[in-house]
Design a protein around this nucleic acid. Structure first.
Length: 802
RNA sequence: GCCGAUGUGGCGAAAUGGCAGACGCAAGGGACUUAAAAUCCCUCGGAGGGUAACUUCCGUGCCGGUUCGAGUCCGGCCAUCGGCACCA
């Protein structure tokens, strides 16, 4: 008999909706809270894709299992509505992005319902709703009040046609829309000082239970390095500071390099003898994008600042100074000490410009290439040509040299991060307005709390202006305001926040989504945090995860969040690739709409297949074959009703099979091994088929175990059979370890590690009995029964070494 | 270049250092059927030997190592995919 999945699934989705099945209070008598979180999607026009479908159904299964285990599980859903796609569609369709986004959200929510997710819809949020972004703005103001938000001159990507571009809109130095070449332009931008949290963001990873590769990505992205900052006097006045992680090579310095755009170059202008040459080089650099600059990495270039010399504080040696575009202004101090003997980049530069080299670490020849830190650290190498430090090991010298520099007052230990401060301004319409006002008298002043949110005004055109300003700058009525501080006329900030803003704290809002007094009540947060499980795409394991951790840490420091780390465990699902093994995309035409498949086979079948298709953490190519198999499997479960017998006890025949299944399915769901959980259920079903009958007690266990994956059909059968209470009140079955113990066991016998025989042994047999049995079983492989050694792992393996 | 992941049948894949290929797909054979679908049963990594129940050898990207025993651990490669890009 074929089951009518359309009717059944719609029926139960409606029941869950009507009875608000998955809504949870912040506290429930006698139940422990558990917060299970999936990354909320950006509601793009194409709707839910396979990747969403895979992770949502898998994590929904996890949440449903925890619910059956008796937890008060919060499993919320929302949408991250600000993004370029909506803005582009708005421009194309001449409709407000609000309208486009509202349309897409409706589709998304409908689709999420139709795959049967158990969502608490009372907690739904959306980042572009005024009652949400009000609090995004309020939190920005807290950053500002704590000195963590400031306006800073930054270089931005600029396209002559399209204005200021986000990094993701620039590909290979070309604007992704009009394909004209982009340049760098200095602009005053809001930044959040995330680097101040760099050390804690790095250190506190040890308190989390993220997947190892995710921790590593975070660490690499943060890029903490411990080193020393050293001041160099400039002959004739002035100072140049550098950052180095290799202070042991300080006696090997033969030149210095400064980033071309560095201010110090301007300060030294009167004393630079070849200014024209220097200026030409600076102009050439300014034209290049960061991409071009990194492209040049094969050919190091630079220009000497003629007439400028720095003084090495350890030996008072005069050192020439260069500018070179391989030095990045925004990292460290924007200047480096160059030691060609121990840094390959400096080596190449020195060769090109004929600069001296002094070897200061012994242990390798430096005439062909540099002897770098990767090669000398930890090998006991000793210093040479380094005055009183000669003869010390590198490790000893690191300490001793810093002490000397500290005494001289010219050096200090310093942490540096690859991670930059977070540029928080976008010259775009579709984002949260930055709630700041500029007053001639008071400077930057935050909007008053009672005036929040600062709402996006209606505009005619959503395109950025030609001069790179936000379209908001053209709405004079909106821009002109009064200073919240002194009441004089003042102007609003016209930049908006980046797409990452709203997603940095949405998991907090879920805990208390309707609060209009605060972003979330502290007690509500305390009830739910930290998140037990946070699942999201691999593409967000660096930036989003870091932003969210940073944002929460700041709130924690303000006493507004109860935890320093918001996520206990972070996992990322593998991609679903097209059947051709390539990423699903419009351009390669290999995309598959999950909702089409759901219509054809039913949500339960698709959910099962998504879980069964392969290891959850690995990428898999899409294939439709398995959906049919899963549908067949569901049919089999449905048809078990025909062989149902009376009985409220698990029968002896199925006892082992049932308890093994309970054990395997329970452990596998907890460990996200959804594919083997399904296979365990299939094994149980095969066993039931073999036995040819099952009773009510056994059917209940089977249905409960399957319920997280196929919630509609299992509930349908449960209700049909008048099993009460409802399946939602069923409790997750417990397995009995004793039930798994068999009286007789098959033990494989190996000779020299090769399988030669199998014997059946009684569970109570002594080692001697088993040994006799084993030896006779493999007689033919033994020389007159002689052997050297026996290794017996009880109930597992018996190995005879001859 | 650096970082991360992956590599097992025709295919998707399983395997706390202990029987490699569970479970499923596809394929082939059989039962039921007038027939088909559905369902159920059997075979299914490769090579060889036997009429046969069976049996021998090889086999987890490649080369070494540790171990009684390695898909799994260690060292060195190769290939594919993803991320980052001169970070001093």
């Amino acid at each position: 008999m074929e089951y009518d999945f359309k009717k059944i699934e719609q029926k139960w989705q409606k029941v869950w909706e009507d009875e608000k099945r998955f809504e949870v209070p912040n506290h429930k008598e006698g139940k422990e809270n558990m917060y299970v979180l999936i990354e909320f999607p950006y509601p793009s026009g194409v709707g839910l894709h396979m990747g969403h479908c895979r992770s949502y159904t898998a994590i929904d299964a996890f949440a449903r299992k925890k619910r059956l285990q008796g937890y008060n599980v919060m499993f919320p859903f929302g949408t991250d509505a600000y993004g370029l796609e909506a803005e582009r569609t708005a421009i194309k369709e001449h409709k407000p992005p609000q309208e486009i986004v509202a349309r897409n959200i409706k589709t998304f929510q409908q689709q999420v319902r139709s795959i049967g997710l158990g969502i608490d819809w009372s907690r739904t949020i959306n980042t572009c709703d005024a009652d949400y972004y009000k609090w995004t703005q309020w939190q920005f103001i807290q950053f500002f009040k704590h000195g963590l938000a400031e306006k800073r001159e930054m270089s931005v990507n600029y396209c002559p046609n399209c204005g200021v571009l986000a990094n993701e809109e620039v590909e290979d130095g070309v604007c992704c829309q009009c394909h004209s070449e982009t340049t760098q332009k200095l602009k005053s931008q809001w930044v959040l000082k995330m680097t101040e949290y760099g050390d804690r963001l790095d250190e506190d990873l040890k308190d989390t239970n993220f997947m190892e590769h995710i921790k590593t990505s975070q660490k690499n992205w943060i890029g903490k390095s411990e080193g020393v900052e050293v001041d160099f006097e400039i002959v004739g006045g002035g100072k140049l500071s550098i950052f180095t992680t290799c202070i042991e090579t300080i006696y090997g310095i033969t030149f210095m390099v400064v980033a071309p755009e560095s201010n110090i170059v301007d300060e030294l202008k009167p004393r630079i003898k070849n200014w024209e040459e220097v200026e030409a080089y600076r102009k050439a650099t300014a034209k290049k994008t960061e991409f071009d600059r990194s492209e040049m990495n094969k050919d190091k270039s630079g220009v000497e600042l003629e007439g400028i010399f720095a003084i090495n504080p350890v030996n008072n040696k005069k050192i020439p100074v260069y500018i070179g575009d391989f030095v990045i202004a925004s990292y460290g101090t924007g200047a480096v000490m160059a030691v060609p003997t121990h840094d390959q980049r400096d080596f190449e530069f020195a060769k090109k410009y004929n600069i001296d080299m002094i070897q200061v670490i012994d242990g390798a020849d430096v005439s062909e290439k540099a002897f770098e830190k990767y090669d000398y650290l930890g090998k006991g190498c000793k210093l040479i040509n380094s005055e009183e430090f000669s003869g010390l090991t590198v490790e000893q010298a690191k300490v001793a040299i810093v002490e000397k520099l500290e005494k001289l007052g010219v050096g200090r230990r310093k942490l540096n991060f690859k991670m930059r401060d977070w540029i928080f301004s976008r010259q775009r319409y579709w984002g949260e307005p930055i709630p700041m006002v500029y007053c001639k008298h008071c400077g930057w002043v935050p909007e008053k709390d009672e005036n929040l949110p600062v709402e996006l005004p209606k505009v005619e055109s959503y395109e950025p202006t030609k001069d790179g300003e936000s379209p908001l700058s053209l709405i004079t009525d909106w821009v002109n305001t009064v200073c919240p501080n002194c009441g004089e006329p003042a102007k609003r900030e016209t930049d908006t926040m980046p797409g990452w803003a709203g997603s940095s704290w949405y998991f907090l809002r879920y805990c208390d989504p309707k609060n209009d007094k605060e972003f979330a009540n502290y007690d509500a947060l305390k009830a739910w945090l930290p998140v037990e499980l946070y699942n999201g795409g691999n593409e967000h394991t660096t930036r989003h995860l870091l932003y969210a951790r940073f944002w929460n840490k700041f709130l924690y420091d303000c006493g507004l969040s109860p935890v320093s780390e918001p996520f206990k465990c972070r996992i990322s699902q593998g991609l679903i690739l097209g059947s051709d093994g390539k990423k699903m995309s419009k351009s390669s035409g290999n995309g598959v709409d999950p909702l089409v498949i759901v219509n054809q086979y039913g949500a339960d079948a698709v959910r099962l297949w998504m879980s069964f298709i392969g290891d959850y953490f690995e990428s898999v190519s899409w294939s439709e074959d398995g959906v049919k198999a899963c549908k067949k499997f569901i049919n089999k479960i449905v048809n078990f009703q025909e062989i149902l017998t009376e009985g409220e006890e698990i029968s002896a025949e199925l006892k082992v099979a049932i308890h093994s299944a309970i054990k395997k399915v329970s452990n596998d769901i907890d460990n996200f091994k959804f594919n083997t959980a399904i296979s365990a259920l299939m094994i149980l079903a095969n066993e039931i088929t073999r036995v040819g009958k099952l009773n009510n007690a056994e059917y209940k266990v089977l249905l409960t175990l399957l319920n997280p994956f196929a919630p509609h059909i299992t509930e349908e059968i449960w209700t049909n059979l008048n099993y009460s209470p409802s399946i939602k009140d069923a409790s997750w079955p417990k397995f009995d370890e004793k039930a798994l113990i068999k009286q007789e066991l098959e033990v494989p016998i190996q000779v020299n590690g090769k399988l030669r025989a199998k014997i059946m042994v009684n569970i109570n047999s002594t080692k001697e009995e088993i040994e006799a049995q084993a030896l006779s079983a493999v007689k033919g492989y033994l020389n007159n029964g002689e052997y050297k050694k026996i290794i017996y792992i009880p109930n597992k393996i018996f190995n005879i070494v001859v």
